[in-house]
Simulated scan of single mutants.
Amino acid sequence: MNWLRLCCVQCRNPLFLPRQGLCSRCDKLIVRTPYCSMCGSLLTQNAKRCGICLQRTPDWDQMVIVGRYQEPLSSLIHRFKFQNQFWLDRTLARLLLLAVYQARREQGLLLPELLIPVPLHRLRQWRRGYNQAALIAAYLSRWLSLPCRNDLLYRIKHTTSQLGLSAAMRRKNLQNAFSASPQLCHCGYTSVALIDDVITTGTTLNTLAKLLRAQGISHIQVWGLARA
């Protein structure tokens, strides 16, 4: 594993700065585009809202993404989630950190008071061995000096995978799938960021955002590695 830390996690070429995890060539291959800071839709220039959001506003307030779910970012995320390569957490978290910094400069992002990773059902987490969103959130918490809580939102229903489901089927699949800890409405936080890996239709995040609103959270951000 030590020699891997000295090489790019994608192309395996030696790194001048090993802490970055990704060489400059592979980093430039990540498809980063201007996007709507509300829903993450592809735009020609950054904007706070797009035409889609004007018609149907998400239940959260702002989104930050690294890039599109295309190579090489898509393969890095797939390896991280499904091939037990949990050690990619630092590299992917750093990419999201830089995206947060960019959103602060260009989109007026204000840092939240609290980070909350999207929860996994205990059975799925047991099978995978870790919650990938929680690993990313742990690094961001340390680097941004923000608290991170894994005990405020729970996935109480073991649902089928959302992969390949339509938006309507995703909503049905997630009915009564999550619950909030009683601590949430007493913790004193009013601004949170939900940490996720891939954002597709946003159904999971909308469900969680509604749950947070019901507990008195007034400002909700969504931070994700990729927008599909």
Rank of each mutant, 00 (worst) to 15 (best):
W3T: 10
L4W: 11
L4I: 08
C7A: 11
V9Y: 00
V9W: 03
Q10N: 10
L15Y: 07
L17V: 13
R19V: 12
G21M: 02
G21K: 02
C26H: 10
C26D: 10
L29C: 06
R32T: 02
P34F: 01
Y35W: 08
C36M: 04
C36G: 04
C36A: 12
G40Q: 08
L42R: 15
L43G: 00
A47S: 15
K48M: 13
L54H: 13
Q55L: 09
Q55P: 00
Q55K: 07
R56E: 15
T57I: 09
D59K: 06
D61N: 14
Q62T: 05
I65D: 02
I65E: 12
V66A: 06
G67C: 12
Y69C: 08
Y69I: 09
Y69F: 15
L73K: 05
L73M: 05
S74H: 11
F80Y: 06
K81W: 06
F82P: 02
Q83P: 07
N84G: 09
N84T: 13
Q85V: 10
L88I: 09
D89L: 00
D89M: 05
D89S: 13
T91K: 02
A93F: 04
A93G: 04
R94H: 09
L95W: 08
L96M: 07
L98V: 02
A99L: 11
A103H: 05
R104V: 14
E106V: 11
L110R: 13
L111D: 13
P112M: 00
I116D: 03
P117M: 03
V118Q: 03
V118F: 07
L120V: 11
L120S: 12
R122Q: 14
R124W: 14
R124L: 01
N131K: 01
A134R: 04
L135G: 03
I136M: 13
A137N: 12
A138K: 14
A138D: 14
Y139C: 13
W143H: 11
L146P: 03
D151Y: 04
L152G: 01
L153E: 04
Y154D: 02
R155M: 09
R155Q: 11
R155I: 01
I156P: 04
I156T: 12
K157A: 11
H158P: 06
Q162C: 14
L163T: 14
L163F: 13
G164I: 04
S166W: 02
M169W: 06
R171Q: 14
N173M: 06
A177T: 10
S179G: 06
S179C: 08
P182D: 10
Q183R: 12
L184E: 00
C185G: 00
H186D: 03
G188Y: 00
T190D: 15
T190A: 12
S191L: 02
V192A: 07
A193C: 07
A193N: 11
L194M: 02
L194E: 09
D197V: 14
D197W: 07
V198W: 00
V198I: 08
I199D: 05
T200Q: 05
G202K: 00
T203R: 04
T203F: 08
T204L: 10
T204F: 03
L205R: 01
L205D: 00
T207C: 15
L208D: 06
L212S: 03
G216H: 06
G216L: 02
H219R: 12
V222K: 07
A226H: 07
